[in-house]
Simulated assay, not measured.
Amino acid sequence: MRVPARWLTGGPAVVAGRALLLVSGTLVALTAWLLSPGPTDQLVLAAAGVGALALLGVSSALPWDRWSPRAPLVFPLAVMGALAAVGTGTRDVAGAYVPFFVLCFVYVGVFLPSRTAYGLLPVAVPLYLLSSEGHDSTVVVRTVVTACVWLLVAELLAQLAQRQRAAADVLVRDARTDPLTTIGNRRDLEDRMTRLRPGDTVVVCDLDHFKQLNDSRGHAFGDQVLREFGAVLAAGLRRDDYAARFGGEEFVLLLHGSGTAAAVDVVERLRQTWCEAGGATTFSAGCATLDDVTSAERALVAADAALYAAKRDGRDRTRSAEAADGWGPRVGADSVRDLSHEF
């Protein structure tokens, strides 16, 4: 069965909350007949089912991303409220479905922030009592023990989920970070490139004579130069801009909404900072700005061609590829121009 797309919106906690409602309602619908419910019991069960379906429908239209991470708490509360209504409104079904309270706390522990279960407990206990049959001393003791189990289960799962998310974040960050320079790597760059829009500028930078530097002073020194250059890029860009090591001594900058002139200003400031920091070598750069007909991939090709034009013209300078429909694997000399001293 294909799940409606609107039920998959709102994030993992909301999607899991909808699943909690569906699983609970489905299990009740499949097993309630075994309890031989009377007409009144059937009406109560039907009303609880209609309420769950209504919440499912409304949840697909709510702006979950604008609300607190604890907003999906409405789902376990709805399940427990429905169980309390069934417990107080039925005779033959009361108490049969109290194990669902454990499932609600499992959901809270896995999908909601840590310690959310403590806030849920004062509401869950009276609802549990309403769902149970009888209120003698045995029920009271069972409720106390059950509440402690709820908290232990929820908090244990919350801690495990938090550790798993932290480990996953580390893996993702490591997979998208260049280990030498600690800025983005090529995999991360490819993903960022898909988010570029017209007006954004792609800049390709390359350290001049880097091979000679490696050969004369050793690879350890070359690695240190790369680290220092990466640090200059990371510190010198605006908050929304981005830097990645493309490979070897080549780096790519993504400057959002800058246009060619502003992009060159950024590159020249970086050049000045690199020089003042005592950079072991200069760098050349080529840039290309996206327009309505130019894809990010073509802009990268054009910026790379402009970089090699800067290399041919003496290095330690910036050149720009003019945005044109003719951008392709190579950019002719007439489509790039020296911008090092124009801005």
Rank of each mutant, 00 (worst) to 15 (best):
V170K: 11
D313E: 10
W64N: 09
L226V: 03
H341Q: 09
S295Y: 00
W150A: 09
V232C: 15
L121D: 03
P39N: 07
G17T: 05
T26L: 15
A231C: 04
V172S: 09
S320D: 02
A220H: 10
L73T: 15
S132A: 08
A235N: 13
D241L: 05
A305H: 05
T9G: 10
D240W: 08
A85Y: 10
R245A: 06
A84T: 04
A117G: 12
A158N: 02
A85P: 06
A78M: 12
S340R: 05
A231Q: 13
R186C: 09
L196T: 11
W150F: 15
G87R: 03
E322R: 11
R66L: 15
A52I: 08
A168D: 09
L180N: 14
A94R: 14
L157Q: 11
R6S: 12
T31A: 14
L213N: 00
A220K: 08
A5F: 01
S216T: 09
S36R: 15
T281W: 06
V293D: 10
V98T: 15
A158T: 00
P12G: 02
L129Y: 01
L307H: 02
G328H: 10
D92L: 09
G184W: 10
R2C: 01
L171G: 08
L112Q: 14
E342R: 13
D223H: 06
L20H: 09
W274G: 08
S59L: 07
W64Y: 07
F229A: 12
E342S: 14
G25F: 10
E133I: 03
P179Y: 09
R163S: 07
T281V: 12
L34W: 13
W7D: 10
A82F: 05
L151R: 04
R115M: 12
L83D: 12
L53H: 02
G326P: 04
V336H: 08
